[in-house]
């Protein structure tokens, strides 16, 4: 029973408590770039989630085979193969989405959420837990992108998933489609999720030492004593 609860937690933590975009602040580049419309944001979220789950499973299964010294190149090779598969599938079945996402689809290879989860989680945990972790993180990523893109598309273009919204469609606030508006929505959402997570008893993601970091339990630094350099950085 306890194990089952643990597994559920591996899944659910990615949605709010350790949301990859809004709490861990990973994958900011695709987040800001693809959230100008709901369609491309959801496409991006789903594509990245698919790669994330597959690469987490593969890396977790191979974690005892991959030598420690060359783990990053090995992870990248695994991630890149899954990205290639996803990219080919999208090209074949959803050419419109492929055009919208453009360079950001192949760039999933270097998405820090995927490499981050491989390094921080999948390389240390069994296959099932890693799959659930990947799924949770993927859902968190997709939900965050969906929320951000909804706000940006409704206010900035006056449409939602291509359907025009009355009044706003005639007077869109263009700034929400532009980068400054993206950063603004990003910040506001981050604040909201921080508050939600705080209510659930997690400390705020502020610079209060390693314990407060949402990644504390899987971070290598946390296990050692904090070096002086780390302290002076803060």
């Amino acid at each position: 029973m306890a194990e089952k609860k643990g597994l559920i937690k591996e899944f659910s933590k990615g949605i709010i408590a350790e949301n990859p975009v809004l709490r861990l602040v990973l994958g900011t580049c695709p987040t800001l770039a693809t959230t100008t419309s709901v369609e491309s944001a959801v496409g991006m979220g789903l594509a990245a989630s698919a790669v994330l789950v597959c690469s987490n499973v593969a890396i977790s299964a191979l974690r005892k085979v991959i030598p420690d010294k060359v783990r990053i190149p090995a992870y990248i090779v695994i991630i890149a193969s899954f990205v290639t598969i996803v990219q080919m599938l999208v090209k074949a079945f959803m050419p419109a989405l492929d055009e919208q996402l453009g360079v950001y689809l192949p760039l999933i290879v270097v998405n820090c959420i995927i490499l981050g989860r491989a390094e921080a989680f999948a390389s240390k945990n069994p296959v099932l837990a890693s799959a659930l972790d990947g799924l949770g993180m993927g859902v968190g990523f997709t939900v965050a992108l969906f929320l951000m893109s909804s706000v940006r598309e409704i206010l900035g273009a006056g449409t939602f998933y291509g359907i025009s919204v009355p009044f706003l469609a005639e007077n869109p606030m263009l700034i929400f489609i532009l980068p400054p508006g993206g950063f603004f929505v990003f910040g506001v959402l981050m604040a909201a999720v921080n508050r939600l997570a705080e209510k659930k008893g997690k400390p705020r993601a502020e610079l209060r030492g390693c314990e407060a970091c949402p990644m504390a339990h899987s971070c290598a630094l946390n296990k050692k004593e904090e070096s002086k350099e780390e302290v002076s950085k803060k």
């Binding site: 007077n171 606030m173 263009l174 700034i175 929400f176 532009l178 400054p180």
Partner: peptide, 8 residues
Amino acid sequence: IILMVSFP
């Protein structure tokens, strides 16, 4: 500036 960028 925000108004200028939003409603040119």
